[in-house]
Design a protein around this nucleic acid. Sequence first.
RNA 1: GUGCCUAUGGUGUAAUGGCAGCACAGAGCCCUGUGGAGGCUUUAGUUCGGGUUCGAAUCCCGAUAGGCACCCCA
Length: 501
Amino acid sequence: MPKKKITKKKIIKTKKMGARAKTVKQAVLPLAPAIPPKPPEVPQAPRGMRDILPADEHLWHAVKKEAEELSNGFGYGFIETPILEHKALFARAVGTVTDIVQKEMYCFKDQGGDELCLRPEATAAVARAYVNHGMLNLPQPVKLWYLGPFFRRERPQAGRFRQFHQWGLEALGDSHPVLDAETISIALAFFRDLELPVKLEINSIGCSQCRASYKNELVKFYTPKQELLCDACKMRLQINPLRLLDCKEAQCELLREGAPQITDFLCEACRDHFMHVLEYLDEAGVSYNLNPYIVRGLDYYNRTVFEIFPVASDDGKQKTEDRTEGEHGGEKKEAELNEDEENPSPVLNLLSSGAQSALGGGGRYDGLIEQLGGRSTPAVGFSLGLERIISYMRSRGFSPVSGRLPRIFIAQLGDAARRKALLLWHELRKEVPAVASLSKDGLKAQLEIANRLQVRYAIIIGQKEILDKTAIIRDMEAGIQEVVDYNKIVGEIKKKLAGDA
RNA sequence: GUGCCUAUGGUGUAAUGGCAGCACAGAGCCCUGUGGAGGCUUUAGUUCGGGUUCGAAUCCCGAUAGGCACCCCA
């Protein structure tokens, strides 16, 4: 045995040496136009952008389906805005001093000189569409939902990509606090349906008037203490004092304890609005956490703001389950707890560790549409990051709903049968999904593939079956097979599958 | 944009500075019309560019990419 191995190795080695020597020679030769000196580099996807592969299809499908059902179910209409927008739209809507506009947008000048950007978020575009299409003439509120890719040039990180997907919905044209509660409850229903425990953090940042007076107070509070702040917060104090509140530096968090809270500075109308939002949430059985430090980074928000976070710790999970128990019963408790004990997922820990890991967020933006040149129009909405949600699902061992795999395989022998098989495939497709590997010749090879795909039944057609106008249906689990009339295949298969179910 | 860590076949992983192996996946055969097991054969790799060294996957520098944290955000 060892002798053999040695000779094999030697042969391989000399082969490789030979090949190497050749390429070296080629590289050294000065004139060899026909032979490229280097193999071409394999192209890579751009940084922070990924292929979504069939292996993850069940996760994406589950998420998209749920999003669509909820959106439609609550009377929201689907809107698809362009991937590209004028740069000015986002500058005006999102705010010129935010990082998103200043450093993260993909912008370019097209051949006609237009300044265009890949959309970094959806709300601005939806608001633009509302104005453009005169939706103020529709019964208010106008309810719209979207799902699609967005682009921000940030450094990629866990749950953060340069191309990412959001599902979101917007209710425009009505300031009623029940709409705030409605959108929030839809977002939470999404997580509940997918069995993902989350917690809701909510706050009100008031209108521009009460926010202005609060900002003054904040600056008054922090200015004498600014030496104690981190460097970033010293900047924040000058540029955007509100953001002092969500700094995660220890010294800043400590200082924050004594800081004035916005809720104490809300004007009568804003306070009243916020109280009503909370009442509606109470009424809807939604549990929330009042968090005076939720601020949101986009300039257009006012009044209600909220963020949604994954829950990892047991106590958090308990809360979530208690809340839903009335509707769903407690069956799932044990299974879920056991799962987590068996594989404590690093992804889960990561997702729940920092404030940067929000699964989604939203709020009210009553000034945006007027800012874009429309009539003064209140609005509220949210958006969720689908990559983060999928990562969360994966960390919780989300199992796909069964029945998505094809359950029928078509195998053929000989070219006449191959042609017949292609036709059969099309006929079958109308009733049940099927697969085939028509390029394979041997029946063995085809059945191996069928086996790997875990199909339930294989339909086999060969020369003999063509002549007899029949086909073989093989039960892949039982290993038995029967000959049926060719015209009865579809009916027979349907009957068998129905029997299984 | 800043910092830290990482980089070996398609995937997952070995190799005190001294012959780049293993497993899975792929292709083919044992078996010309029947899968799941087994056996055999085979394809395929040190990210790139410099440096140190008799000798580098291994040490050093740089680039690139990825991961993570900060920043910011979904």
